[in-house]
């Protein structure tokens, strides 16, 4: 067998192994990444969707966070403007997680049949935070 043929066989093995790992990996670990509207529609069409672990990206509704100190449980609502539902999470949340200024949040968990999203993970983003428009405060120095 020529070296080039041998190499081609080895290469084919590696390439197919990589492909197999990727396909299997996606099949077994891929999770839906939805907006609240999409999730509500999906659940309406197919109630088994309540049992599927998934991620939802939305904004935290202002002033909706309530914390239960003893059990470290946090309840809040998320919305994308159209659909809105409550989320329950137990654990420590990142510093950036507030209900002050429409922060983006990604919650991972299951949307239970009780209409509450039971999150196992909460990731807060702080994208638009300090890119707010500059407003001229009263009585500041004017442009030179």
């Amino acid at each position: 067998m020529k070296p080039a043929t041998k190499f081609a066989i080895g290469a084919a093995v590696i390439v197919s192994a990589v492909t197999l790992l990727i396909v299997e990996g996606v099949r077994q670990t891929g999770t839906y990444f939805l907006t609240p509207t999409q999730l509500v529609e999906r659940v309406r069409d197919d109630t088994t969707f309540h049992d599927v672990g998934l991620k939802v990206s939305a904004k935290v509704v202002r002033g909706s966070i309530s914390r239960d100190v003893a059990s470290r449980q946090i309840d809040f609502r998320i919305s994308d403007g159209t659909a809105e539902f409550p989320v329950r999470y137990v654990g420590l949340v990142p510093d950036t997680f507030t209900d002050a200024n429409d922060i983006d949040v990604v919650v991972e968990g299951k949307y239970g049949r009780d209409g509450v999203f039971h999150a196992v993970d909460v990731i807060a983003k702080c994208g638009s935070r300090y890119e707010a428009v500059w407003e001229e405060p009263a009585g500041t120095l004017t442009r030179r």
């Binding site: 192994a17 990589v18 790992l21 990727i22 299997e24 990996g25 996606v26 077994q28 670990t29 891929g30 999770t31 839906y32 990444f33 939805l34 999409q38 991620k55």
Partner: peptide, 18 residues
């Protein structure tokens, strides 16, 4: 038409053997 995301579990499954 549906977003599916993969997380650390995917990357570890694929990349640990490689």
């Amino acid at each position: 038409g549906t977003k599916i995301s993969v997380g650390p579990a995917f990357f570890n499954r694929v990349n640990v053997p490689l």
